[in-house]
Each structure stands twice: as structure tokens, then as C-alpha cells.
């Protein structure tokens, strides 16, 4: 018996290919639109940060000109604490979205640099604020790297844990050391705190420097001992 197959329906293969391409392109377009929306959101959040920072500066200037400033200090501190928390959240989002970014990768990188600068100026501001107001928060400057530091994520987990416990009383300012070559300000901090390639991560809790990873217990002790007023949470930590 001589048998033959039906000829191949090439048109069907092409039609299916086109349909697949259409659906796929739609998916890719949605992805790109989403990236743009993410970028815009980060930018507008950053603009808001700038305005808040200007406001804080003005508030501090105003307070230093007064003799009775206790009540006004509480407004300043609350604004600062909230603002730093928002800054942390925005930076977290930025780091997450930056990995998936394609069209706005460059913009995201610039934004990351901007957020790092914001962190540094907020850290300076928070320290300056201590001279004028009686504050109940502590500051942690956290130097980390994503490229040459396997244990840095662990330190990040422990810091987030204490952030959850102490909330706005613990102000964390993360500084990405991978941006050193792009941002001279980071270089200045590196020189000031004498940070080298082998000493990562580095924590500056208040004014004290801690090199290498700090365990949950060690960091808990350091944080609790740094508060000027006793904290109820420290009863569990210490």
C-alpha cells in the first residue's frame, strides 16, 4: 500500500507564530509600561523626600533660634523618623526593581545614587538634630556591598529585624559601597571611618564603629545600650 501524508499547512504555523508573537509582545509591552510606572513612582517619592528634607532643615533652623523648643522638637523628630522610614522603604523597592529594569536601568542607577546621598544627608541631619533636641532614637550607618560581601545579606536581615522591634526609634542609613567609584561622598565616609575591602559589613551605631557581621544578640546589646532612655523591648533583647 502506497501511502502519503497530507501536505504541511505552513500558513497555520505562521498564523500561530504571529498570534504567539502578538500575545508575547503585549506581555513585554505591559512589562515595559510597568517599569516606567515603577520609575515614575520612585522619582515622585524622591521629590517628596526632597521637600520633606527642606522642611526639616527649615524647622531645625527655626528651632535653633528659639529658647523654648521642647514641643516643636517633637514635631521635628516625628517628621524625621517618618521620613527616614519612607526613605528606607523606597530604597528597598528601588534595589528590587533595579534588578529587573531594562529601559530605565540608567535612570534607576542615578536614582540609587540620589537615595544614597539622601541617606547620608538624613544621617548628618539626625546627628545635628541631637544637639538641639532631646531625642529618643539611635542612628545606624550601615556600609554594605552586593558584590564582594557574602555575609552582608545576613547583617541586613538582622538590622531589619531590629527595625521591626524598635520601629522609628532605630534609624538605619544603608550605604552601598558598590557606588564608591561613582559617588565621591561615599569615598569621604570610607576615609573617615577607615573602611577597607576586607572590613565589610561595617556598622556605625551612634559614633561607634563595628567591623564584620554582628550576631542578633550582639547587635541587640549594642542597640539597647546606645539608647539614652531605657526601652521596654530591651528587657527581652538583653
Amino acid at each position: 500500500m502506497v501511502v502519503q501524508r497530507e501536505p504541511l499547512n505552513i500558513k497555520k504555523y505562521i498564523a500561530v507564530g504571529l498570534l504567539t508573537f502578538l500575545v508575547f509582545s503585549l506581555g513585554v509591552t505591559i512589562g515595559l509600561l510597568l517599569e516606567k510606572v515603577r520609575y515614575s513612582e520612585l522619582k515622585s517619592e524622591n521629590q517628596l523626600q526632597d521637600i520633606t528634607y527642606n522642611s526639616l532643615q527649615l524647622q531645625l533652623l527655626f528651632l535653633t533660634s528659639l529658647t523654648e523648643n521642647e514641643e516643636s522638637c517633637s514635631v521635628l523628630i516625628t517628621t524625621l523618623q517618618q521620613s527616614v522610614t519612607v526613605l528606607e522603604q523606597s530604597l528597598e523597592k528601588l534595589l528590587m526593581w533595579e534588578k529587573d529594569a531594562t529601559i530605565s536601568k540608567e535612570g534607576m542607577s542615578l536614582l540609587k545614587r540620589k537615595y544614597t546621598l539622601d541617606n547620608i544627608r538624613y544621617w548628618l541631619f539626625a546627628n545635628k538634630n541631637k544637639e538641639t533636641c532631646d531625642v529618643n532614637f539611635i542612628t545606624v550607618l550601615y556600609f554594605f556591598s552586593n558584590k564582594n560581601c557574602d555575609i552582608c545579606p545576613d547583617q541586613g536581615i538582622i538590622l531589619s529585624y531590629y527595625k521591626e522591634i524598635f520601629d522609628e526609634r532605630l534609624l538605619i542609613f544603608p550605604i552601598d559601597l558598590d557606588l564608591t567609584s561613582e559617588e565621591p561622598m561615599i569615598q569621604l565616609l570610607i576615609s573617615k571611618f577607615n573602611i577597607t575591602e576586607t572590613t565589610k559589613p561595617v556598622l556605625i551605631v551612634e559614633d561607634k564603629k563595628y567591623v564584620g557581621i554582628l550576631s542578633t544578640d550582639e547587635l541587640g546589646n549594642i542597640i539597647c545600650n546606645s539608647f539614652s532612655h531605657p526601652q521596654s523591648e530591651c528587657e527581652d533583647v538583653l
Binding site: V23, L26, G27, T29, I30, G31, L32, L34, K93, M96
Partner: peptide, 14 residues
């Protein structure tokens, strides 16, 4: 919602 990869999710949804 912006955390979701909506582009890939669309393809998966189809």
C-alpha cells in the same frame, strides 16, 4: 501591585 511582574503574568494568564 507594582511588585508583581505583570508582563510575564499576562503571558502566563493567557
Amino acid at each position: 501591585i507594582l511588585q508583581l511582574d505583570l508582563g510575564i503574568m499576562f503571558v502566563l494568564y493567557v
